[in-house]
Design a binder for these strands. Structure first.
Length: 576
RNA sequence: CGGGGUGUGGCUCAGCUUGGUAGAGCGUUCGGUUCGGGACCGAAAGGUCGGAGGUUCAAAUCCUCUCACCCCGACCA
């Protein structure tokens, strides 16, 4: 490609709307332009990157017996009603109505539609397993689209759905995708980590996310410093050693705590640690209120809580609400005296092992101390409810948990029979019995992967593309028009060898060309200038490392090919 | 949905407090001088000041409504 012909309007200044690196650099490098909040145009450079990522994804999907198809974006409401998600998805779904007043949505995901297709065509166990995928736009009307391509309302996703006859088959499909995903992100040149994940709205029981490690990541992950345990904080569990009841057991005692409402206030007033208190929160749910007990120092993990209580609605009740519904004063609320018949009481498992605890007395200005949970409020359900934190112990070994931020670029789920049952996708097994198909689903955010790659590969001058997903592999920069004939010759020779070359044939000053080259971030920059040419050489700069080299004109093609191949191989072998 | 902020030429922004009919830098076009890390000189094009309504002799500026975009939050007693 000749740069004079390239549609890549670069910017000297960063548009005010961009906050994070990838967004800024993609705007500046002339890769994307916004058309609405969370909706972007991909200009040619971005499109090339997306195509390359997609190609890698396709290769790895196909290698694991995936078959590409294309599902409709516009989907009828009925199948969503059948699965029960027309209402569950709520405002996040872009909905539309046709001229006959029939309802549709723009597909936020494709379980319903593909399950319907498979249900209509698959009859026998002999038709299975199937692994079907597509790479296509998804539409989600996010509460708050942000960070450029990171959280868009229209984005590109690869989604594969597996259909198996039994759990063992599902496990095989799941592992196949796990392998494929590891290869894909390695080949893309990313530093990433698979972590245990909550399965969220899609449902199912087992799930892992692939996180690209980067500061800009919206997800917090916890990982063990000595084994390979790693989990999204939404899912993470930790082990906390608790003191045994070596203290003497005292009778519960009411204690005046005037004006001491927060955990911190109560703790400093009574001279105790937050770990010795239990706080009581009320949540509103689809099934009425639940009381939730956790240590004063802990945070309720609302994802875990939501999974336990079920339904769609989950919110922390306001002080006014608690006063009105229960007649209890926030700041002094406690489990003692709560009637399990009237309100479901859930407590974090840690609470069960606590001793000499301070809790609210359900009376303004008073708390109870020396409370023994098992003695004083025995009728509670103990479940894992707390948010795990860095520094705590790994649930699998004696290691400690560390924290990192990650960008979720992929997630794999075992769905089981959730959709096949809802939509009646059955097959006849060897005995002639009708059985629901066992499903899995596996997504990769293609456009987000591009953004994530930039978050991991940039410097103050611009992007540093990994070789495998760079829009071009070699950037030829003749210093002036005098060197253009030599550059053209190299361009021709490199292109003939299959090298992807961008030739800066613009009539610009060298400084401008160099600045644009750094910004766009093509891995190998070859400067053809009078100084080098006098010695029959060109100057080479590797964008990733910043290293310089000099190649004689005659060896440019072979050196470039060699470098590209070894760069590709480095990530590819790492992937195996 | 709550809170905060911003909308002025392609980009970054000034002007608004105290109304008087729109500016700078960059970019773009033309001419010239330049030419190894975003050159210089000269000329020029380009703006319904997000939109609607109102106040006023007069509105980018004041008031009301509205739209869009950005950020924070949807938080723990």
């Amino acid at each position: 490609m000749r740069q004079s012909m390239l549609f890549a309007p670069t910017l000297r200044e960063t548009p005010a709307e961009a906050e994070i690196i990838s967004h800024k650099l993609m705007l500046r490098a002339g890769m994307i332009r916004k058309s609405a909040a969370g909706v972007y145009t991909y200009l040619p450079l971005a499109q090339r990157v997306l195509t390359k990522i997609s190609r890698i994804v396709r290769e790895e999907m196909d290698r694991e017996n995936g078959q590409e198809l294309a599902l409709p974006i516009v989907q009828p409401a009925e199948i969503w009603r059948e699965s029960g998600r027309w209402d569950v998805y709520g405002d996040e779904m872009f909905r539309l109505t046709d001229r006959h007043n029939r309802e549709f949505c723009l597909g936020p995901t494709h379980e319903e539609i593909i399950t319907t297709i498979v249900k209509n065509e698959v009859r026998s166990y002999r038709d299975l397993p199937l692994r079907l995928y597509q790479i296509q736009n998804k539409y989600r009307d996010e509460i708050r689209p942000r960070f450029g391509l990171m959280r868009g309302r229209e984005f590109i996703m690869k989604d594969l759905y597996s259909f198996d006859v039994d759990e063992a088959g599902l496990e095989e499909s799941y592992q196949a995708m796990y392998r494929a995903y590891n290869r894909i992100f390695s080949r893309c040149g990313l530093r990433f980590r698979p972590v245990e994940a909550d399965s969220g709205a899609i449902g199912g029981n087992s799930s892992q996310e692939f996180m690209v490690l980067a500061e800009a990541g919206e997800a917090l992950i916890l990982y063990c410093d000595s084994c390979n345990y790693a989990a999204n904080v939404e899912k993470a569990v930790s082990v906390i050693s608790q003191a045994a009841a070596d203290n003497e057991i005292k009778p519960m005692e009411r204690v005046a705590t005037p004006e001491q409402k927060t955990i911190d206030e109560v703790c400093s007033f009574l001279k105790i640690a937050p770990e010795q208190t239990v706080k009581t929160l009320f949540y509103g749910t689809d099934f009425g209120y639940v009381a939730v007990l956790v240590r004063g120092s802990d945070q309720v993990n609302e994802i875990k809580l939501g999974n336990i209580v079920g339904g769609n609605k989950l919110y922390l009740a306001s002080p006014e609400e608690i006063q009105e519904v229960f007649g209890l004063p926030v700041g002094y609320v406690g489990p003692i005296g709560l009637d399990p018949a009237k309100v479901r009481i859930l407590a974090d498992t840690l609470v069960e092992g606590m001793h000499q605890v301070v809790v609210g007395a359900n009376e303004v200005g008073f708390h109870y101390q020396y409370v023994e949970p098992q003695r004083d409020f025995p009728k509670v359900e103990y479940v894992d409810l707390r948010t795990a934190c860095a520094g705590e112990r790994c649930p699998h070994c004696q290691g400690h948990l560390l924290e990192a931020r990650g960008i979720e670029v992929g997630q794999i789920f075992k769905l089981g029979t959730k959709y096949s049952k809802a939509l009646g996708a059955n097959f006849l097994d060897e005995k002639g019995q009708s059985m629901p198909i066992i499903m899995g689903c596996y997504g990769i955010g293609i456009s987000r992967t591009m953004a994530a790659a930039i978050e991991q590969n940039y410097d103050e001058n611009g992007i540093k593309w990994p070789m495998a997903i760079a829009p071009y592999q070699v950037h030829l920069v003749p210093v002036s028009a005098d060197q253009l004939p030599v550059a053209e010759e190299l361009y021709r020779d490199l292109t003939a060898q299959g090298v992807e070359v961008l030739l800066d044939d613009r009539n610009e000053r060298p400084g401008v060309k160099f600045k644009d080259a750094d910004l766009i971030g093509i891995p190998i920059r070859i400067t053809i200038g009078p100084k080098g040419l006098a010695q029959g050489e060109v100057e080479v700069r590797f964008r990733q490392t910043g290293e310089d080299a000099r190649w004689s004109i005659g060896e440019v093609v072979q050196n470039a090919v060699k470098f590209i191949q070894s760069a590709l191989k480095a990530t590819e072998t790492q992937a195996l």
